[in-house]
């Protein structure tokens, strides 16, 4: 029981991070039907930026108030990562809109190679070990069990929940969210009704990057190590989450992220940690083969 509850907490923490990244994949796929391969590297970039901002705030400005630092790092990383993804969309994807299907995919793979190598060159290939940001453990146990929850885990879940709430509000209640959903359903009709499709797509990339940046900040705090090659595996897993939840469906992405996080931690705890990535990839393959529309997605109808 101890192990189970402990792994549940760990899995939900990891799953929150996957879920935040998965939203970026699913939104972009929903609106322009493209697998944004560079998204995992945008996430890695944001984790690196978060670490740099954190170091800059503590070293050069001498800030010591943790909540203030956290909020500044979070907002700063979201803004800069948003700008990065906006530029990437502008440079690498927008010229290819309406072109043939493989072109944006290759362009995205190129972007992904570019980003990870850029970070490798400008920041060096070694692991960057962040200083301990937040320490502190809680013990609690229903019915005699002993489960350890770190302050970091609580922070991650709280931040994820509140930002998902904010994101949900944006998509459901604001004009931007309506425009986004309209573009996802039918771009031409949306354009006829006066929606600036290009601008909406740009903003989609910015929002996706901002959520990936949140994931990046939390990843940096949770693991304390950032490396230029950290983008690929979390990226593919977040994509798996998006597919598992039903690509194009926003609640599906979060649900899929949590499930992948849970499956991975439970697999590592009860079976073998060597094969935990194999488990994630197998789920991806099995979902796609037997349930291509995912848990909450709409089936793709082919019209002749």
């Amino acid at each position: 029981m101890d192990v189970f509850l402990q792994q549940l907490v760990n899995g939900l923490t990891l799953g929150s991070i996957y879920g935040l990244i998965a939203i970026g994949y699913t939104m972009v796929f929903g609106i322009i039907g493209m697998v944004n391969f560079a998204h995992g590297d945008v996430f890695m970039l944001s984790a690196m930026i978060a670490l740099i901002l954190y170091m800059a705030l503590t070293m050069f400005l001498g800030l010591s108030s943790l909540p203030l630092i956290f909020i500044l790092v979070l907002v700063g990383t979201m803004v800069i990562t948003g700008l990065w993804n906006w530029t990437i969309e502008r440079v690498a994807y927008r010229p290819l809109r309406g072109s043939f299907r493989l072109a944006p995919l290759i362009s995205a793979i190129g972007m992904s190679i570019f980003l990870s190598n850029l970070v490798q060159i400008v920041q060096g290939p070694r692991n960057k070990a962040a200083p301990e940001f937040l320490s502190g453990l809680f013990h609690f146990g229903p019915a005699g069990a002993d489960v350890t929850v770190s302050l970091k885990q609580i922070l991650i879940m709280c931040v994820t929940l509140s930002l998902l709430g904010l994101f949900w509000f944006i998509v459901q209640k604001t004009a931007l969210g309506r425009a986004q959903r309209a573009c996802a359903q039918d771009q031409r009709m949306a354009a006829l009704l006066g929606i600036d499709v290009d601008r909406t797509i740009s903003l989609t990339f910015v929002i996706g990057a901002a959520l990936a940046a949140v994931a990046g900040v939390l990843f940096m705090i949770y693991y304390g190590v950032v490396n230029f090659s950290d983008g690929f595996i979390p990226g593919v897993k977040a994509f798996t989450a998006a597919v598992l939840g039903g690509i194009g469906s926003l609640p599906g992405a979060v649900l899929g992220g949590l499930l992948i996080g849970l499956i991975e931690t439970f697999w590592a705890a009860y079976f073998s940690s060597d094969y935990k990535d194999v488990a994630a990839f197998s789920i991806l393959a099995i979902t796609l083969i037997f349930m291509p529309s995912g848990l909450l997605g709409r089936p793709d109808v082919e019209k002749v």
Binding site: L53, L83, W84, K128
Partner: peptide, 25 residues
Amino acid sequence: LITAGLCFPLLVLRLEQDSSNQLTL
């Protein structure tokens, strides 16, 4: 302007491990 915004933290500040393995900028 955009380049400056993109590059500011990533290119200007380089994370380095110093001799005592502490991260510095």
